[in-house]
Design a protein around this nucleic acid. Structure first.
Lengths: 174, 174
DNA sequence: TAGATCGTTTGTGTAGAGCAAATCATTTAT
DNA sequence: ATAAATGATTTGCTCTACACAAACGATCTA
């Protein structure tokens, strides 16, 4: 196992902050999206479909990080409202290719328009430039991870955790 | 009601991305934190306590955006492990002032150390500089919102939503 | 023809999280 | 001094998200 390129930075961990901020966004998003018959996960799904193109259900479940079983119901919702379409793949007729409809694209745009108000509230401390910066960082991060480039990291995470937990009562090295 | 300073930017909405990325972080964080007897919310609470200092429970619930009823149980967990302390406030003896203990600070540092592996996996597309940038953006955003500077926005959100939902079948203006 | 794969349905279990009501200690107002 | 309000707590209810498992039909592949 190779060296872990992990440890040496300043202790600035984004995890908790990310959690915090996204919780704020989500709660507000729920009330904003509800009247248009969407929930955050629907919006997320539509966004992914637009930004990464049509996709088979398995792939979609993987990028969304949710169980494919649960994705079915999610897609049922969206299809019932005509926002997405399931086409059978010509190459493999077992597969469903999920794609955004025109109606879906319009609804997505409208939902994002509504989300502007939420972001204005939650990100009020950031200038427009900074929000744009934040957007591109998030975009870059999610896009790459979706390409599942970092699968090998899983092992190193586990061993790393072992190391962290092992010395549970010893003083912490800085 | 004043003008809404909302609409004119390019349609780059961070909401969904934030949701997406934080989901990725959270699921991984769960498995990383579990062996040290923490869950994401615990980590978040400890982080807030460190970064914003001691706080009464109401204030804490507000910043965390969770119900104060549920906070009680959360703090019980943390107190049972000696990570936080509830002191009665001298000025108002009904109040509990929650503060991080030394043990808690150490555990927090250790947890963040463990989280480095998670972030390495999820943010692998970002350079160290970019992660630092992301951190400071998130930091800035959360810090300000915690200062509840943006309370007035709530109304404008509501009216904005009204406007968005009203024209549900009309074409979308760009 | 047999086995594997994709999507689907159904069902189960657990955790997160809001909400409501009642209680105790304490503070504030009258 | 008494009444009302407040902060924390407890209990209990409900809803949703989400993972997991089992079984089925359609289809592909060996």
């Amino acid at each position: 196992m190779a060296s872990l390129p992990v440890v040496n930075q300043p202790p600035h961990r984004c995890g908790a902050l990310l959690d915090h901020l996204s919780r704020r966004v989500r709660t507000r998003a729920e009330s904003v999206l509800a009247p248009m018959n969407l929930r955050p996960r629907h919006l997320l799904t539509l966004t992914v479909l637009r930004d990464h193109g049509s996709s088979t259900q398995q792939a979609l479940a993987a990028t969304l990080g949710i169980d494919s079983t649960n994705l079915v119901g999610l897609l049922n919702d969206l299809e019932a409202d005509n926002l997405i379409e399931r086409r059978r793949s010509p190459e493999d007729r077992r597969r469903h290719v999920v794609e955004l409809t025109d109606v879906g694209a319009k609804k997505l745009a409208k939902a994002e328009f509504a989300m502007a108000a939420v972001e204005d509230e939650v990100l009020c401390a950031l200038s427009l430039e900074q929000r744009e910066q934040l957007y591109s960082l998030l975009q870059q991060a999610t896009a790459a991870t979706e390409a599942e480039a970092c699968v090998a990291a899983d092992d190193s995470v586990r061993t790393h955790v072992q190391a962290c937990v092992a010395d549970d009562d010893k003083p912490l090295q800085r």
